[in-house]
Design a protein around this nucleic acid. Sequence first.
DNA 1: CCGGATCCGAATCGATACTG
DNA 2: CAGTATCGATTCGGATCCGG
Lengths: 232, 232
Amino acid sequence: MASRSYGQYCGVTTAVEQIGERWALLIIRDLLVGPRRYTDLKQGLPKIPTNILSTRLKELQEAGVVRRVPVMHCGLVYELTAYGRELEPIVLALGRWGFQTMGDPDPEDVVTADSLTMALRTAFRPDAASDADYELHVGDVALRVQVEAAALTVTQLSPPAPPVGGRLPGGEPQLVFAATPGIRHVISGELAPQDAVDADVLQVVSGAPSLLDDFARSFHIDAPSHRQVRAS
Amino acid sequence: MASRSYGQYCGVTTAVEQIGERWALLIIRDLLVGPRRYTDLKQGLPKIPTNILSTRLKELQEAGVVRRVPVMHCGLVYELTAYGRELEPIVLALGRWGFQTMGDPDPEDVVTADSLTMALRTAFRPDAASDADYELHVGDVALRVQVEAAALTVTQLSPPAPPVGGRLPGGEPQLVFAATPGIRHVISGELAPQDAVDADVLQVVSGAPSLLDDFARSFHIDAPSHRQVRAS
DNA sequence: CCGGATCCGAATCGATACTG
DNA sequence: CAGTATCGATTCGGATCCGG
């Protein structure tokens, strides 16, 4: 295994040796949402081979990033250690960085509940957020998105996952809407919410469409000023 | 190449597809210090195979992270684009994160000028820094480390590299000292500078040893409070 | 169903050699 | 100086299988 060493004595190198292997950071991304079972992770990462998943989980435990916890009612879950949770700002920053060059989705690309949850966290602007209670649908994924006092709470409705805090969201959402991947143009500010509705990128199921403006203010990632040049 | 896709539509996934391949982040780390030639990168990453280096450089250009720039007097350099430079806070945060679990160096581990430069940047605390002018030696690497008005300037003396700003540091350093990798215990606060001198972790070549205390205050990464458990 | 382990072909990585 | 070319060693990906 020393053959995989980068041969340098440096903090960045150490970090990359611990979490730089293929799939590792995506496992961590999902675990940042909450503890997950092996099967949950496999479903959230549809293209990961099962042997890679178990290998990575072992390596991440070895590195002190992930912990294996037995759960009383049949089963066990993987969860981040305190050390692993320190990666949250880094993963969020990486998500913001990558967002800027996201193109259109491949036909085979999926949006999972955990990745969408983290995407909302990357885009959340506490200082610009107004209190609101949304229900967001993207493909098969349904999320309850609650903003209160500059704090974001995301609960997965479908597929259902236990809320992190332990409480289920009460009451009715003020706005229920569905989005296509084109919503990224709304998040980047290139497309106004009303125009997105007109272009069928967003669809209001119930509630006041004007709340979409609040949503767009609360969840925003600036488009890159340096016009990205990409060879196709 | 689509076989290497993670199959998800998500900012983190996009980022990892762009900079998550083996060696990529270490190339970026070195380029964050300044533009580098192919040969410079190869020397800074002694264990990278040359075909991997050229493959990564091509991929990073394709992703808009790196640019290839011809230089007037014979040769060409690679440099980060504006998009690539946005990774600086992420790489620094990763370096701080990884620093916490750095053990002792393998016998074959090396310390390079660029990795040490970035290590100093990760550890730099602008708010706690006092103005000073150091010369630091670690192995074959010699660095001029200047702190002025809460700003850090690192110049590579050996091996010599053109300073980023274009100016060579003037005057004499106030303190010249040599360090072994054990300096990480000083950076983490586990070892007082004086004790480090007594333990031969640090050696003052010239200047007032009391300046080492300023250095330790200016460059600091807290040890993990959550005592890391690592299986050996 | 959960939590993997095993097997095998395909792709990538690593080391060295070589070239304009 | 700035890379290609080659080739064996590893790892990855996809599928199947297995014990609870």
